[in-house]
Amino acid sequence: MTGGASHQLERTLAATLYWGTWLASSAVAVGMTLALLESRTLGETTIRRDTRITTVGIAMFVLLPIVRVAVMLFAFLRDRDYRFAVIAGLVLTITLLGLLVGLHV
């Protein structure tokens, strides 16, 4: 059975994911709205709409789980739960390797 320290971790993770989702969703919503308004005012002549804010929101969504693993890593280190810190570190490393593969493939 996991103790009170673990419930604290669950609350921290819940807050991280909750606010992260709000932030990322808002960025995507703002980006989409601006792009839609822009395309309407320019009418037929729009060729390429500015999607930078939307892209930032999407990047936030992709980074959010990675941040979540980092939060877990720090929590395990703080609790001196080194076995789990190593496991979280491993997951974080694999995730970052994914980004590296994206650069080179």
Binding site: T54, P65, I66, V69, I94, L97, V105
Partner: peptide, 23 residues
């Protein structure tokens, strides 16, 4: 979320994610 982030991260860096569609 984490499982998806590994591959989505690679797609994002590689430029395969089209914001107009993914957003």
């Amino acid at each position: 979320g984490v499982t998806g982030a590994v591959s989505a991260g690679a797609y994002l860096i590689h430029g395969d994610i089209v914001s107009e569609i993914a957003g």
